[in-house]
């Protein structure tokens, strides 16, 4: 390795992310916790060029670039190799974009999760599918459209990747976002302390695709949590649900949607539908939390929903 010797930083400046890039920020926050004894696997996604085009890299740890669908498989292979070499304290981080995790990489994730490979898989989701011309992920609709898959996915909801992972009964999965760095750090620490397959879904803002001024990156990510579009919670062993950040006030989804150019074409009706959907998902999440607190399905007391008026 030929890294700058004088650096004690997890990630150097000079990466190629756009101004206000949430992925670069998220990676630094994660790497600051993981430290230098780690190997990172990155498929084709923003990170593969934001961090520096091969063979350059802003991150302080070695990065292995792999094909889009193979991230989890390669990470599992690295873990096996490390075990053979006796390097059990080296962390393996799979760092994949939304497309590589939700879509083409899902099979490899599922298999690695099923085998409970000892890796930390973090899907940083900028809701963009940037590599394929920004068209796939949105919470409801996309003004730009374009691209092969655009039309029939326009009005669909994002997959609930945490539910998919929880259904694998892996030891730990969680959502996190860059607007709550303390929560993110806590979750990474917790994940690293648990052996087995850990999955995190990290909301990382993309000013370019979200069509927002770069300085609003963090504010809108915080709005995603405050509107409950992206609740911050964790699931242990696929059953124990817990909210990790409960915002002081809940705000209407329009606070998140209306400031983004990509949602400029949403009608009032569409926003109302999204609000309803968000509330229904929130109720489901609350119910799962109640169940994991010891309640048995069907016998849960109907508690009034814990909600703070906006």
């Amino acid at each position: 390795m030929m890294l700058p010797q004088n650096s004690d930083r997890a990630q150097e400046s000079g990466h190629l992310g756009c101004p206000g890039c949430g992925e670069a920020l998220g990676l630094r926050l994660v790497l600051e916790i993981i430290g230098s004894n780690a190997i990172m696997v990155v498929p084709a996604c923003c990170a593969s060029y934001v961090d520096g085009i091969w063979p350059s890299s802003a991150a302080r740890i070695p990065i292995l670039h792999v094909a889009m669908g193979t991230t989890a498989a390669v990470a599992a292979g690295i873990r096996a190799a490390l075990e053979v070499k006796g390097l059990n304290d080296t962390h393996v981080l799979a760092w994949a974009g939304g497309s590589g995790a939700f879509d083409s990489g899902l099979q490899a994730i599922s298999s690695a999760a099923e085998r409970n490979e000892d890796i930390l898989y973090i899907c940083y989701n900028n809701e963009s599918y940037i590599d394929m011309d920004i068209h796939y992920f949105t919470s409801g609709s996309n003004r730009r459209g374009g691209g092969a898959h655009a039309d029939h996915r326009r009005q669909r909801t994002q997959k609930n990747i945490i539910e998919i992972m929880a259904a694998h009964h892996i030891p730990y999965c969680a959502t996190a976002c860059v607007a709550y760095p303390d929560d993110l750090a806590d979750k990474v620490k917790k994940a690293l302390s648990i052996p087995g397959f850990k999955f995190m879904h990290l909301l990382s803002p993309c000013p370019t695709h979200w069509e927002i001024p770069s300085e609003l990156s963090i504010e809108l990510t915080r709005a995603a949590v405050e509107t409950r579009i992206f609740p911050l919670y964790e699931v242990e062993d696929g059953t124990k649900y817990a909210i990790s950040v409960l915002p002081g006030t809940f705000v209407p989804v329009s606070r998140f949607l209306s400031r983004q150019g990509r949602f400029a074409n949403l009608s009032a009706e569409a926003i109302r539908q999204i609000q309803n959907r968000v509330e229904s998902q929130w109720r489901q999440l609350q119910r799962r939390i109640e169940l994991s607190r010891g309640g048995v399905s069907g016998q849960v007391k109907a508690k009034p929903e814990k909600q703070t008026a906006p």
Partner: peptide
């Protein structure tokens, strides 16, 4: 901070740095 071309690794492992890129 890159190794010479004949010392490049067989795998696509990033190992230089980006400090040269004055953003």
């Amino acid at each position: 901070h890159l190794p010479p071309v004949n010392a490049m690794p067989p795998l696509p492992i990033s190992q230089g740095w980006m400090g040269w890129n004055r953003t």
